[in-house]
Design a binder for these strands. Structure first.
Lengths: 229, 229
DNA sequence: ATCATTCTTGACTGATTGGTCAACTCTGGT
DNA sequence: ACCAGAGTTGACCAATCAGTCAAGAATGAT
């Protein structure tokens, strides 16, 4: 039916495949986020993607494969953001940029964050190897950096682990508990100004908490998506 | 009824009912925490409780009723802990006690915390009224208290909402993401000393972050369950 | 000992699930 | 015009699900 012409300008086959996979993955991310792996149904994902259920299995062989694809995509996005923790910058700059970036991610990828939370809460049956290798390596290098800051007397002596967990927890909270936050906000999503204020507050408390003076908010550009890679 | 006599260790019927309901609720809390509502099965809960599945339906009429009971129990536990935010105390004392109590709760009720997180992530289909009434009221009163602290110049001027969310996020993270934390801890659960250090670090960063000097760790008694109400 | 009541449980049911399949349409190349 | 291969889809299947039920076991009161 009209399915084919909904693709981009060029009607190439690979475009159809890419477009449909994109739609399926987007729908799946949302449904997995809201219901967890076990609670999600292929029918629900199909409906949300606007495709018949059999079509899902044509592109993604099984529910588990689909879930794995979703989780891997999220982990890659997380990895990109993790780069904004510049190990060569000053503590103020490295931490404030990282926190701001993670807050922005909670706003832009709230479904992905929830899927990640769900996966970890269930004991990470799918992504345990990511945790043990990639995440652990990333964490260890940042811990080393923070420890060097401490040794240089740049920040107060705190166990770097707890500091990192605090940043993760606080920023991801705005995605995972978005519904609770909205309810306590009178049922309305946070406005642009509220997001910016929350980001500055979180950044300010954490930086001051370890003995730093937070830098002036960076250009205030809230919709300046992100800088170069 | 004949309930006049105080419930002793007699093998009375009500004892059997209470004991079985307790076992079912405990098993259900764990399974709902690990799989979410949709992913949990009555068979799994029955196996974990050591009872035949039909027995579950004898005590609790449906899966949804069972889930509701679990969630309500968790909310009540949360409410008790919320009392440790003493509105009459100094900011240092009110906040440090509240944070310590919430950290302890993350350790003692990790399943409950996960069920709560799951429920909120799914849009709080069951407990929306709790969010809108009880939680909102509690939050508003604490926000008012924090605002008074600010007006009195006791703490730095920060939006109280973001401060509360930060405390919730950070403390609950230790329950909801316990698996990730364990993995990054070499596969071992946090030791008593690590829990205490994490608590003090979280407390220290947040208090210093709003311009307070954290009080000396309270008696360091890590297994001194909790004081009176 | 009798008996009403509570508790136990294997066997069952209708509904829903993930996944399959064969018949079908559409597309670009020739 | 024709065709090979990509994309589409309703109908179907075995497995699993929440929930039911009736027959029986256990218990306290008399």
């Amino acid at each position: 039916m009209t399915q084919t012409e909904s693709a981009a300008k060029t009607g190439s086959r690979t475009d159809i495949r890419e477009e449909n996979e994109r739609r399926i993955l987007a729908a799946a991310e949302q449904v997995f986020a809201e219901r967890g792996f076990g609670g999600a149904t292929m029918q629900l994902i199909a409906d949300k993607a606007g495709l018949p259920k059999a079509n899902l299995h044509y592109y993604l062989s099984s529910k588990e494969v689909l879930y794995r694809r979703v989780v891997e995509r999220i982990f890659n996005i997380w990895l990109e953001a993790a780069d904004s923790f510049e190990t060569s910058a000053t503590p103020e700059r490295a931490l404030s940029r990282y926190i701001a970036r993670k807050m922005q991610m909670s706003r832009d990828y709230r479904f992905g964050s929830k899927v990640w939370a769900n996966e970890v809460m269930q004991g990470a049956p799918i992504i345990q190897d990511y945790l043990e290798v990639t995440l652990r390596d990333w964490t260890e290098t940042r811990i080393a950096v923070i420890r060097r800051w401490i040794d240089a007397g740049l920040i107060r002596p705190v166990e770097p682990r707890w500091l990192l967990y605090m940043i993760w927890a606080t920023t991801q909270h705005y995605a995972d508990f978005a519904h609770q936050i909205e309810t306590l906000n009178g049922g309305h999503p946070l406005s642009d100004a509220q997001w910016q204020d929350a980001t500055e507050t979180v950044c300010g408390i954490i930086l001051r908490g370890i003995g730093l003076e937070p830098p002036a908010p960076e250009a205030a550009g809230r919709d300046r998506a992100e800088g170069a890679p």
